[in-house]
């Protein structure tokens, strides 16, 4: 392990940098905005009130939001499969794995999988399922190479956003970002309770969690919206550059 040094001696000190910014703004001292920025002036109670409204709204029109999510997701090139049956959901994954002729799949540990007999169903097809949750750091490299060798990555979703057809993943025990990114095919399992209407909903709910958790944001928040793509050569669309070329959504509920 390389010793971590303090590199703040390079560059210029924060105070010097900020005072230059201030001078450029025509001021000599720091001034907080008056009145303060409206969003940053909101307290926890305000955010909780708004979150309650969001949840009520979602409850009232969950069917509509689910439809909208499915429609938008299809437009963003997700292959969408809707079912209310856990069995059918597992069946879809197994069939996908079979059609892809994969011998190994990688899966994150997320609540959605607790009640799905997915691993055993895949094993019955001779497909090994690598799961991420490992208690020892030494196992991490093994898991990483396991993900890299997998033909299919399976994740849940912390949010599914109807406005954009996106799946949002947050850090948690048992979830590696590589599962949704490195294998050539990604499948996300989404439950009705994961749905939100808009980007506004996601950021409000995350903001609320941030303040509830003592201003801890978590190390990442990723939106995944369809397959990896590029149009960098002659503006021709190519899918599957560094991430998956094929993406599936199973909507359960």
């Amino acid at each position: 392990m390389v010793e971590i040094q303090n590199v703040n001696s390079l560059g210029i000190p924060k105070d010097a940098f900020l005072s230059h910014v201030r001078r450029s703004l025509g001021r000599t001292e720091g001034l907080a905005p008056t009145p303060p920025y409206h969003r940053l002036a909101e307290n926890l109670a305000v955010l909780e009130g708004q979150a309650t409204e969001i949840r009520q709204r979602l409850e009232e029109k969950s069917g509509e939001v689910l439809d909208r999510f499915a429609d938008t997701a299809r437009l963003r090139s997700w292959n969408v499969f809707r079912t209310t049956s856990a069995e059918d959901a597992v069946g879809y994954v197994v069939e996908l794995a079979r059609n892809l002729s994969v011998t190994q799949a990688a899966r994150s540990e997320q609540p959605v999988f607790a009640r799905l007999p997915l691993d055993s169903a895949l094993q019955a097809e001779g497909i090994e399922c690598v799961t991420v949750a490992q208690d020892e750091a030494s196992a991490r490299d093994r898991v990483r190479s396991g993900i890299i060798e997998s033909g299919l990555g399976i994740t849940g979703a912390d949010y599914a956003v109807a406005e954009t057809g996106s799946v949002v993943v947050l850090p948690r025990k048992g979830l590696s970002r590589l599962v949704s990114l490195v294998p050539p095919v990604h499948l996300a399992m989404v439950r009705t309770e994961d749905l939100v209407e808009s980007l506004d909903d996601v950021f409000l709910l995350r903001r609320l969690e941030y303040y509830r958790n003592g201003e801890e944001m978590g190390s990442y928040l990723n939106f995944i919206t369809g397959p990896s793509r590029t149009a960098d050569i002659e503006m021709k669309l190519v899918v599957g550059v560094h991430g998956p070329k094929e993406v599936h959504l199973v909507l359960l509920g």
Binding site: V7, R76, S219, N222, T225
Partner: peptide
């Protein structure tokens, strides 16, 4: 309507995270 990926990073990997950098600058 949205790019394929929007990634938000806040600090380095936390001890309980499965992946991520040890240092964030």
């Amino acid at each position: 309507r949205l790019t394929s990926y929007v990634s938000m990073v806040t600090g380095p990997r936390r001890s309980e995270d499965e992946d991520g950098p040890e240092e964030f600058h």
